[in-house]
Amino acid sequence: MFDNASTLWAIAAMAVVTLLCRCGGYFLFSRMTPSPWLRKALAHLPGCIFAAYVLPALLVGPARNWAGAAATLVVMACFRNLGLSIAAGVAAAWVASLAV
């Protein structure tokens, strides 16, 4: 079932590091009192982190993904339905891949 010890060690190391990332930021933050400025900055984090994820991913991906992104945004803005917007985005990317 498991092939060797080094693989298990690598998985364990990844698991520990990832757990430290997930819990560590919260742990450090809970030990201090954030300044008003830091609170303001943190309030901008949610949108900014997704913008920082999405834009580079779209730029390195195939061009048809822009069609998918546009469809996802429009459907989400109109219907506020996550499942529908993901499906619309994949469908649009698929159609665009057939068209190109």
Binding site: P46, G47, F50, A51, Y53, V54, A57, L58, G61, P62, R64, N65, G68, A69, T72, L73, V75, M76, A77, R80, L82, S85, I86, G89, V90, A93, W94, S97
Partner: peptide, 22 residues
């Protein structure tokens, strides 16, 4: 690896931008 189905993962991130927009 670049099958359009895999765009679903990125689409989820894109869709989540909408409710975060203030």
């Amino acid at each position: 690896p670049h099958h359009p189905l895999f765009f679903g993962a990125l689409a989820a991130f894109i869709a989540l931008l909408v409710p975060l927009w203030r």
